[in-house]
Design a protein around this nucleic acid. Structure first.
Lengths: 100, 100
DNA sequence: TAAAAGTACTTTGTATGGCAAAGTTAAAAT
DNA sequence: ATTTTAACTTTGCCATACAAAGTACTTTTA
């Protein structure tokens, strides 16, 4: 039986509150576009872009580009893998904190 | 009414999993000594010491020194303030994640 | 049609944090 | 006398966070 306080199972990718926020948003909403996400979490363009590209590199989110009318529009969605990883993280969190 | 995804309320001090672990331990156990904490969380001396001193600086934990027999022994405990701050953090986390 | 604004970045620069490993101090055990 | 234990501190490196500014392209507006 492993340790009661197993912080190893917490996913480093989700330590930052911004990424926690991003994933929370994407668990509830299948697709969210750049500006909506930016406003939901109150981020600067650059900050959002860099967190998103980090999550993309891990294959936790997928980025899709479309046009609305003639305006470019970037959509984010959580990948299957991302949802599973996030859920695992939440389970680990819960196990760690349940006792508190 | 504030935003549904309010990551601002997450306490920066508790973003790191090590500090999450420390606080979890100290919510359950009134007092934990240096070496027990070190083993519970599988940390190096220096790493534990630096996280503890960060939490101490924020008045989230209190450090008490005693002797067991003639051996020095360092005890950690969560302060009232620390418990409240941690609980607030957990509440904010829960609010953020409930929907996921 | 020239200027302003929007979209989605990338780049730059700074500051902060995490971490291991090694060094330190002092007492205790062998 | 040497080693071990306890609890740090210091050093050095690397990664991350973030704001702000820059970029490229398009679209709206005056």
């Amino acid at each position: 039986m492993s340790n009661k306080f197993n912080i190893e199972q917490l996913n480093k990718a989700f330590e930052s509150r911004i990424r926690l926020g991003i994933m929370s948003v994407l668990m509830v909403n299948a697709q969210v576009d750049f500006n909506t996400m930016k406003e939901l979490l109150d981020l600067t363009d650059g900050n959002l872009a860099s967190h998103m590209s980090a999550l993309e590199k891990l294959n936790y989110v997928e980025v899709k580009k479309q046009f609305i009318g003639k305006k470019p529009n970037t959509l984010f969605e959580a990948s299957k893998e991302g949802k599973i990883a996030f859920q695992k993280h939440l389970n680990a969190l819960e196990k760690l904190l349940k006792q508190s």
